[in-house]
Write a protein that binds this DNA or RNA. Structure first.
Lengths: 327, 327
DNA sequence: CTGAAAGCGCTTACAG
DNA sequence: CTGAAAGCGCTTACAG
């Protein structure tokens, strides 16, 4: 490969080896039905001419890109970065590459992915965002998702949001919390994440406790304001469940700055607050099995791409991990 | 797009509109030389048949994938995640997509990227890894890099490692540090990162201080051991410069666990230790202009892809950011 | 086992 | 302004 326009093609190899292009193709693809002698000649020619197959042509012929798109709200966040890591790893095992797209702020990036599928730039996509409303466009596109139930035949994997949240809140109550709050970053669309709020309200009802709830659609960067509002409105909370990747850390720091002693005055449990390796504080958390979610979602997608049957909803078990923010 | 084999093609559109395929192509590509009447007919047909261009064919014809690969050691790390974010953003502006590859542990992933270039799966690549030795294969491939000087005509962007390190170390000395150490994760290949060690040694010589230096090739996951060794070997240090994305946090925590008071007993400065938004502790740091590095490297790559001239070395200025680990 | 030919879906001179 | 044809680099029946 010298200039990108001087690559040697299958034709060059055929001529050099004195065979037909079909034969060269067969050698490249390791088909058995090629004479030993011929094969050697071709291999020699390939080496001599430093041939590499042009996969654009290959893919056009095969009608597959062997690329999947991964759409995350932001890649610059521990949860999504970790997810991306395992998605790439799993995709690789199946011979797929991963096109990374951070939808950050820009809603139209979601539509862009659909376009990429229709234009045959990728074979399918993993959606980990919470923006898009109109689901019509997704029709028949190989798409899978995390936490989001589209209601169509779009499979998704999620974690046991309801049960895990219930358990976490009960845990705080058992350790003395009496005024338990919930603060969350609410997804824009139907999502299993909403189960957390439901679980919270159910536990409150069960214990006859009045809810202290803020669950809003939070713009990126607005976390601090929402947290401050919450802590002002419900200044008396002594236990809080924090839902949402981006706010648990913000919440924790805000509480400390207000002079709250954690966990003595205030217990905190978050959904996905622990990213030890990134140095994030040691918050008691419901930990999602990110690796497993990633691998499952990729496998689902590949099945979809090949038009195989898939189950639409996969629920994975979380782990309750004790940190320093509960008694 | 119903089944992936039933897409409507340019031919279908041409037939439907009663024109030639060339004309359809011209409409798609918005060429002016098409009659108003004809254009309308074609557009109508496209809409009626729900046509989307097959970009595999388009790209084969144009001989460009409009994809660049980004090779990072791990995506699951603040520095690389942030870099990836801006790389994607910048690439997008130029109409390119980003294929994400985490080379994590596996050295051969680097070679894989070269293969992808030769096989025309991507137009070029950004290398942010420190593994590969043999540079022969890179010949004539559109590749750019961060921090790495290949010695060939492979452009790279880096930061002012030498000056920034000198400044940081002097800063600690001016504030009373007398036994200054250096711990680093040494790159496997020629890299500007090595300038940090050189700067450290120069300052030590300048002040007549004996060096306390550990600069090793650290396997992922081995950070803790190396740090422990360092702190045992040089138990008397009262100022340490930490070089390497992954060890600053580990070092800081280890020091605290040993009962060191920071910064009273021990001052710490790291190269890239601050990732506030990820909750990483507030270490005094030399902060690299990650966004700018990302954007520059992408622009360099695109120039290379188009065989334009580029300067081989771009040095960007760091910022010295005070945290809580210096006096 | 092997070659010649058609075709994947597009673009682009070439005539008209 | 427009159509017919060649070609991008491959694969794959189809004959032999």
């Amino acid at each position: 490969m010298r200039g990108r326009y001087l690559d040697t093609t299958i034709k060059d190899v055929a001529k050099y080896a004195g065979v037909g292009v079909g034969t060269v193709s067969r050698v490249i693809n390791n088909e058995k039905a090629v004479g030993k002698k011929t094969r050697e000649k071709v291999l020699e020619a390939m080496k001599a001419l430093n041939y590499s197959r042009n996969n654009m042509a290959f893919r056009l012929r095969k009608n597959e890109t062997r690329i999947i798109a991964l759409l995350v709200p932001v890649i610059n966040h521990p949860f999504f970065a970790k997810l991306a890591y395992y998605v790439e790893d799993e995709a690789c095992r199946f011979g797929y590459s991963v096109l990374l797209v951070s939808s950050q702020q820009k809603v139209d990036k979601e539509a862009e992915i659909i376009t990429k599928i229709k234009h045959r730039e990728v074979d399918g996509a993993v959606f980990v965002t919470h923006y898009m409303h109109e689901e019509d466009e997704l029709q028949d596109c190989p798409i899978v998702s995390i936490d989001r139930s589209f209601g169509k035949d779009i499979p998704y994997v999620t974690s046991d949001n309801y049960d895990a949240t219930k358990k976490a809140i009960r845990y705080m109550i058992e350790r003395g919390a009496e005024r338990v709050g919930f603060i969350g970053s609410k997804p824009l669309v139907a999502s299993e994440v909403l189960e957390r709020e439901r679980a919270y309200l159910d536990v409150m009802a069960e214990y006859g406790m009045p809810p202290r709830l803020v669950n809003e659609v939070i713009q990126h960067g607005e976390e601090a304001v929402v947290v401050a509002d919450f802590l002002e409105k419900y200044a008396d909370v002594d236990g809080v469940f924090v839902s949402g990747y981006t706010i648990s850390q913000v919440f924790y720091e805000a509480a400390l700055e207000l002079g709250k002693r954690v966990p003595e005055d205030l217990q905190i449990v978050s959904y996905d607050g622990i990213f030890k390796q990134w140095g994030i504080s040691n918050i008691t958390s419901v930990e999602q099995p990110i690796e497993e979610m990633a691998r499952q979602v990729v496998r689902l997608l590949i099945k979809k791409i090949h038009s195989e049957e898939t189950c639409t909803r996969t629920v994975l078990k979380t782990k309750f991990v004790l940190g320093a923010t509960t008694k």
